[in-house]
Amino acid sequence: MRVVEVENLRKVFGDTVAVDGISFGVGRGEIVALLGPNGAGKTTTIKSILNLIVPDSGRIVVAGRDVRPGDYWLYDFISGVLEGNRNIYWRLTVEQNIRFFAGLNGRKISKREIDGILERFGLGEKRKTEARNLSRGMQQKLAIASVLARKTPILILDEPTLGLDVDTTYQLMEIVRSLREDMGRTIIVSSHNMRFVENTADRVIFINRGKIVAEGSVEQLKRMFSYETYMFRASGGNISPQGIFPDGKVERVGDEWRIYVSLNQSEIYDAVDALRSNGFLLKEIRLQEPDLESIYMRVMKEERSDETASGNGNA
């Protein structure tokens, strides 16, 4: 069952087309990630779903009901942490923030529930600390914890990993997964952190210039872009391998080359031939599993070349 549906959403600000006909649905208990470069329209889409932006056209359906401007009923079902570190009250303590946000949804939250949330987020010792005295990572955790206290079945997180270190990002990854696993929450998340998305999302939606350019589970995307990345280890050679593989990534390690290139099955023989005929001695050919980042780069690159090909690319 779909708990959120976006249909043909469009939003123009002045002469910027922020969202240009986006449609997707989110099933109950699903974690869906929105990926895309700066200015792609992720935040605009998210705020439209949250009814904080009135779109120019299109439909937003939450829990089976159409959302109209000025509606508030949807906040029984959906809540969100927006971009940046400004979702909480800096002068309130951790616990006061959680109580306040629960109160905004008409909930009187029990001490036990607060304990549970604080433990999940590793904020137990900071209970009485004012939010402004927390580290950036803890503030972000508190923002999510506070919104969690609203107890809506659907959660939206806009760039929750921005500015966080590797360790905190990892913790957040675990938390987001556990929210779905233990609590059955449905989550829509936008992030620039590919590892975070790859490890949390059931489904990924690539957005570029206000349009969806690819969509699917991480596995599907890997199959859909079924090129594979090969790593050649080679030595010798009378030219730089970059000359043979202009799109590849070339590294020099000691006296050998490591060449990473995306090839399909038939191209691989040509590649081997090209290396040999230029005097390279091949030591190893290894198949690299494509990761989300390489898929992302590939999708966005194809987008760019499409634009130049059709003559309207200006970025």
């Binding site: 949250l50 906040y75 969100g80 927006l82 570190n85 009250y89 905004l104 949804n105 008409g106």
Partner: peptide, 18 residues
């Protein structure tokens, strides 16, 4: 300014009541 206005808006009571 604090960035909490949008959080206040996301209350099922509506901003009027808040």
């Amino acid at each position: 300014e604090q960035g909490t206005l949008e959080q206040l808006y996301m209350s099922p009571y509506g901003f009027k009541l808040v």
